[in-house]
Write a protein that binds this DNA or RNA. Structure first.
Lengths: 242, 242
DNA sequence: CTTTAAATTGACGTCGCGTCAAAAAATGAC
DNA sequence: GTCATTTTTTGACGCGACGTCAATTTAAAG
């Protein structure tokens, strides 16, 4: 075996390996969607992909790694949606609202995955995940947060000392709602039928408190929602148009 | 066996049963604190309590029931802390801040348990929990939310149409921060060293946006924190004074 | 075609949950 | 006090899922 053949053969191997990893991940996602977290077992993935368990373990060291990878991809798509939001918003408030919609729409595209984010972030779970994948998740988080902080910073709309608080408050509110949406909580039974709508009302109030100018964006939930879906190039059924 | 002996004997039996349930729960809590969620196995509880697995299963139908019961107790204590907060706050803003402190202090009293709340609320987990215990959790949630809504309502400080939004926004922000605290997230690495402090700043901004009057309460984090601990009758090490 | 290297497999070991038949303890009748 | 009956307790067992690794199949090289 020569170095050239190794280089070429290696890259071809990598190609194959990459494709199989795709296959495994899409099988895992299907299982998650169809049978829930309980139905997502390594054996089931093996059956679904027509490989054996051993081969699956050549790609992922443990079940947690598979889930982490799913979450990572979900996060990567989120980042790209956020970038679209930032590119299309006209002012600070508008951008913040669109970025929030990016989260919701991303979660709607793949609710099964999005609902597992906080589980995957738990220390218990993370302790089983490979260093590399842990790092991947961290990168995503940083990408998102830095975009949000950058947004509050660049817009010159609020005083410097309120930048971090603004980003933090939005972040906290956002995850709180995500939590309420993922696990039903008791909200709907207590008169909060549509948490998303309440979130946006709360967000506007928070931005008011921050002193963010009221651009010329609509405060109407439905209107902005439709606008967001148009921007993100989703059809009415929330399918991605690729 | 006569009805009288059954009645008396029954209540004595119940007493014994109750005591053992305490024993099991405190053993479970110890294990959780010392060995983490991994270390909390039914066999370990059996060993710790010097009973056998079978006997443990006489009290709790599954492992999830044990955890749910721990969370329930943690929630019950939280409700009582909230009541203290409501009784001691002087105005809407003051009460909201103290109630928030009730959450944080409760979480500090038993971080291992508090960190599991969102896991326990997940549908996957809840599906294994007995009806009765599910109901117990729901009651706690309702107790808390109704107190918060009641607070925003009774204080006559904000217009009626903003009551629910106020309660919701606070709730979302609160859980978001709890999440950040439980799973470290990447916050500390991104310059948010003390999420609690940022939470209170955000909360004040939100309340500003709501138009809540600025009572005469201190906005200083440390000051109010100390005040809260005094009210809740905790010493400087956060131990309960009973 | 043979030899050698790599990839694939699935039987196996392990662990934890939850069950249940058997053993032990408590209760009650005489 | 003793024996029968009911209740409680026990831990061995079955099960399912994870992760491993020796053996086997497949592919590559000479």
């Amino acid at each position: 075996m020569l170095t050239t053949s190794k280089a070429l053969g290696g890259s071809r191997k990598d190609q194959v390996r990459q494709e199989r990893e795709e296959l495994i991940l899409s099988a895992a996602l299907s299982l998650l969607q169809e049978k829930g977290l309980q139905g997502l077992t390594m054996q089931a993935i093996a059956d679904e992909t027509d490989y054996s368990k051993g081969t699956i373990y050549q790609h992922f060291g443990c079940k947690e790694d598979v889930l982490t990878k799913l979450i990572t991809r979900c996060g990567e798509r989120l980042v790209s949606l956020i970038d679209i939001a930032l590119a299309n918003g006209t002012g600070l408030r508008h951008k913040v609202v669109l970025v929030s919609w990016a989260f919701f729409i991303n979660a709607e595209l793949e609710p099964e995955t999005a609902g597992l984010v906080s589980m995957v972030k738990s220390p218990e779970f993370q302790s089983k995940v490979s260093e590399e994948l842990q790092h991947g998740i961290a990168i995503i988080d940083q990408s998102i947060l830095s975009r949000v902080i950058g947004l509050f910073t660049q817009q010159n709309d609020i005083p410097p000392e309120k930048i971090k608080v603004g980003a933090f408050g939005w972040w906290a509110m956002k995850w709180g709602v995500q939590d309420v949406l993922a696990n039903d909580w008791e909200m709907t039974k207590l008169g909060f039928e549509d948490p998303k709508q309440y979130f946006f009302e709360s967000l506007h109030i928070f931005l008011d408190g921050l002193g963010v100018s009221t651009d010329e964006i609509s405060h109407d939930f439905e209107t902005v929602g439709r606008q967001a879906k148009t921007i993100f190039q989703l059809d009415n059924n929330n399918k991605e148009i690729t």
